[in-house]
């Protein structure tokens, strides 16, 4: 369906207005809808990212109005941020909120990012173990490549390096 207003773009905003018992329907594209809104008609409230997030979380945690019912709910042991508060604001309270509300965050993170595992930079200090794990991962890839190219001497070097790193991991060190 094309937009009633510009007749060019697909209509994605469908508005039903009832004035004095008289019903009118309009179908608008995102662009015209936001223009009309900017002119002050003021339907379709502006999308606020935090409200949007809060809405998603609310859904994750048990459906509509759950937030109000559980204004307190479970609280993060470190910062005291409660489920209800997180739902309302769309923001977590501290780093520990992530493991604390992990089960509830997982589906949300998957929905936002399509993924639940970090594959990027690892800090040198706080991410010691993670850095080693990543390094092993990296070496394994290079080992596979070396074997593919039949560079067995290089492959053996990679294998030894991997063993060394795995050993330090087992011993609980950070390499």
């Amino acid at each position: 369906m094309l937009c009633d207003h510009c007749g060019q773009r697909q209509a994605t905003v469908h508005l039903t207005e009832i004035t004095n018992g008289h019903k009118t329907e309009s179908h608008l594209c995102q662009v015209c809808a936001s223009e009309i809104q900017a002119q002050g008609f003021g339907f379709a409230p502006q999308l606020n990212l935090h409200h949007f997030m809060a809405g998603l979380l609310n859904h994750e945690l048990g459906g509509a109005n759950y937030g109000q019912q559980q204004a307190d709910g479970e609280k993060c042991a470190r910062c005291g941020m409660a489920e209800g508060q997180i739902m309302k604001q769309g923001l977590l309270g501290c780093g520990d909120c992530y493991p604390y509300f992990e089960e509830k965050m997982q589906p949300l993170l998957r929905r936002i990012h399509g993924n639940t595992r970090h594959t990027g930079k690892v800090p040198g200090r706080t991410g010691g173990r993670a850095r080693t794990v990543k390094e092993i991962e990296n070496l394994k890839n290079r080992l596979r490549e070396a074997v593919g190219r039949e560079e067995f001497e290089r492959a053996a070097q990679f294998r030894d390096a991997i063993r060394q790193l795995e050993k330090t991991l087992e011993e609980g060190g950070e390499a």
């Binding site: 769309g90 923001l91 970090h118 173990r129």
Partner: peptide, 17 residues
């Protein structure tokens, strides 16, 4: 830094984690 092996750098809003 606030960092987790699994989730990376931890941020106030989950859209940045």
């Amino acid at each position: 830094y606030a960092f987790s092996e699994k989730l990376g750098y931890l941020t106030s809003c989950p859209t940045n984690v």
